[in-house]
Amino acid sequence: MSGIVVEGLRHLYRPKRGSPVLALEDVNLRVGDQEFIALLGPSGCGKSTLLYLMGGFLPVESGRITVDGAPVSGPGPDRGIVFQHFALFPWKTVLQNVLYGLERQPMAQAEREERARAFIKMVGLSGFENNYPSQLSGGMKQRAAIARTLAIDPKVLLMDEPFGALDAQTRHLMQTELLAIWRRTPKTVIFVTHDVQEAVYLAQRIVVMSARPGRIKEIVEVGLDKADPELTRSRAFADMSDHVWSLVRDEAIKAQAGVGL
């Protein structure tokens, strides 16, 4: 059984104070190899929790998640992750950050270095190898984080609102580049976002989630031609965005109301 399979997943979030909250209930999902999936929903719908469970960062307590048939039991280099706030090691330079994962792989030091530089070049950060993250802009930090994750060649790429902290222009550039990278080196991508257009633009399938408790509301086949440079201005794109937005809107309103409870 190849790909990621989620079956009957249920997860309780236990805050330090107060009683547990049901974050996910009865989640079932199959993701094929090299498929680009977006998890879309309002904040608090458990989409990030689902991603963390796939990553093995949180323990699966009821239900199961398998990757290529093997149950997830912890984090591993087969599933790379990119976080919204970059999570670069601030005391390491860009090069040292990218090398961190490679140092844990069996290869010669010279090869590691060569590979790290190649990925830094691919994300357009050549010349910034020896800068610390604090010396980079938000977009550059996220490029560095993506290079670090791609360098260890994970089978699955988990992305937790990776462009959410960037300004609109940078976000758009990064989306285009991510698509280009994905077409060159296809991987299974699970992309968490609350931005409808971002999901429609990037993903092949969009998993729309409902809030409190998080459930899968509907899975939408996008079916657009990602290679088309005029894609975002096409009628099909607008229609698809409208359709997905109509699915999300009710949930967003419900989530808003929930905040006031």
């Binding site: 912890g74 599933r79 844990r104």
Partner: peptide
């Protein structure tokens, strides 16, 4: 930051190693 710890783990570091690093 827990995302730093998680990053180290998903880059292949063991639990102990990620504590240290």
């Amino acid at each position: 930051d827990r995302t730093l710890l998680w990053s180290a783990r998903s880059l292949g570091a063991s639990r102990l190693r990620s504590m240290w690093d």
